[in-house]
Amino acid sequence: MENGFRGLFLSLALLAGPTVQAASDQAADETDSALIEPKIERIEFDEATIDARDYEVALMAGYLSIEDFGVQPLLELRLSYFITENIFAGLRLGQATAGKTSYEVLTAGAPLLTPGERDYQYYSLDIGYHILPGEAFVTRTITYNTAFYLSGGIGNTDFAGSDRFTLNYGAGYRFLFKDWLDVTLDFRNNVHDMDLFGELKTTNNLQFTLGLGLVF
């Protein structure tokens, strides 16, 4: 009887044996295949998909002192491209309307310029450098990135009926409220020749502007 049971178990074991073995083989196969072919997460890291904030568009408003023609409100549009984190190149477009010269006011005679000629419009191609990048600590926990920059460039001023080659240089302070929003305070000199009063002279036209910019 005992032998009978033993025989039964043995035969069962024999029958089951290969199955158990097969199962463990299968498991081993699975492990092997897992080693050979891992489940690769296809995460492509493409630098081009990273949102690059290399451009800035800013609207500036302030005052322009037009030599001999008084101090007038000025509106300026700026487009900048950051070549590196500190070097930027840009285009400025500006518009102001010249006032009257002291001569025109005192003599109340014939105006020197027609209304159209009083439009002071300029463009400039500039290059700038964040010479003092820094941080402003508003409170213990709130800090903003800032930059003091120098910039300059060449362009043209259309004023008093003629185009005038214009050189400009200046400095400013950029305050980044967000990575995409900044406020800029800018002081600049626009230098160009004028021959309106008979003799050719070089004029210095200082501008002071404050503006809001979007970085994108």
């Binding site: 990273i50 949102d51 290399d54 590196t84 500190n86 990048p133 941080e135 800090t143 990135n145």
Partner: peptide, 28 residues
């Protein structure tokens, strides 16, 4: 703390820890 070598280092991320890129300015 900012995009530039001059901005101070305020923290480190150690080996094995993860990070994700939000955006960039030039090479930062």
């Amino acid at each position: 703390t900012g995009p530039g070598d001059g901005y101070p280092v305020f923290n480190v991320i150690e080996r094995g820890h993860r990070l994700r890129v939000l955006d960039r300015r030039a090479d930062w």
